[in-house]
Design a protein around this nucleic acid. Structure first.
Length: 270
DNA sequence: CGCACCCCCTGCCGGC
DNA sequence: TGCCGGCAGGGGGTGC
């Protein structure tokens, strides 16, 4: 589910519910996530007050009043929701963080590829591999050129490498390459400067627009208030194999890159 | 060392 | 109707 726009939408929808609230109880039902939940998560979280929620790539950082950070990654199927503390528990509700406001912040994740981890910024080594953020950071064309210079991998894989650029996943990589008119299999090192410029613009345009619309609503995506995203009606290539290109009516192709479904218009993308 | 591949896990969908 | 294979928005480890 979550790429940068969904994570950012989630962050914004959580702010008013969470920031300023104090943790009164933590209820863990499943510790086996991407990595086992910290043994003392409950003890360390109780009594703490959330001071801010930040985002880096696809990671959410819940800042606490003791200088620690609760790091959350939603993986493929993770959700966060704020509910009345009295609300019933659903299947795959793994962690419930009860707040002083009478609500609970609930982490639900059927596939358990998500992550919750408590620590200081320096201790959270996951963050060491998080690259530039497409919306928080801005980098010049020369940086694009330097980053791609010796990389022979497909440009789509380049875009999805979180160590380089953080936050782009499979849907938006496909969408921004369509927007830029570049085929996903092109080797990063072979892109011309003019193409990198188009890609840079397309990246920010696609992500900003998706954030503006509240993220993608593929499957059952919801923000913390249960609102769906509206990006899916704007998908131009993702999951549109064998359907006509919205621009030129050429049939959209599906290929597989590094095991991930990849879609492009053979006429609009070169 | 860059990169492709496989795995982690559950749910859902289409085909038989 | 039910079972089974394939696929799904992510990331990390392995091995070539």
């Amino acid at each position: 589910m979550p790429e940068l726009p969904e994570v950012e939408t989630m962050r914004r929808s959580l702010l008013t519910h969470v920031v300023g609230s104090t943790v009164v109880n933590v209820d863990v039902r499943e510790r086996r996530l991407r990595r086992p939940l910290d043994a003392n998560l409950e003890r360390l979280l109780c009594g703490r007050t959330f001071t801010a929620i930040d985002r880096r790539g696809k990671y959410l950082l819940f800042e606490l009043d003791d200088g620690q950070t609760l790091l959350v990654h939603l993986g493929m199927s993770g959700h966060l929701a704020v509910k009345p503390a009295a609300a019933g528990t659903l299947a795959h509700d793994h962690v419930r963080i009860e707040l002083s406001s009478g609500t609970a912040l609930v982490f639900n994740d059927p596939r358990r590829f998500g992550l919750l981890r408590l620590g200081t910024i320096l201790e959270l080594d996951e963050l060491r591999n998080v690259g530039c953020d497409p919306l928080l950071d801005h980098w010049p064309l020369e940086t694009w050129r330097d980053m791609t210079r010796d990389r022979r991998l497909p440009i789509k894989n380049f875009l999805m490498d979180q160590k380089l650029i953080a936050g782009i996943g499979n849907i938006y990589a496909n969408e921004m390459l369509y927007e830029a008119g570049i085929r996903p299999r092109r080797r990063a090192s072979r892109l011309r400067l003019s193409e990198l410029r188009r890609l840079s613009k397309a990246m920010r345009k696609v992500l900003r627009e998706a954030v503006r619309l509240g993220g993608s609503s593929i499957s059952d995506y919801r923000d913390a208030d249960g609102r769906p995203g509206y990006f899916q009606i704007h998908h131009t290539v993702y999951d549109r194999a064998d359907q006509p290109c919205r621009r030129c009516a050429t049939i959209i192709r599906r290929i597989v890159l590094s095991g991930r479904s990849t879609f492009y218009c053979p006429k609009c993308q070169k």
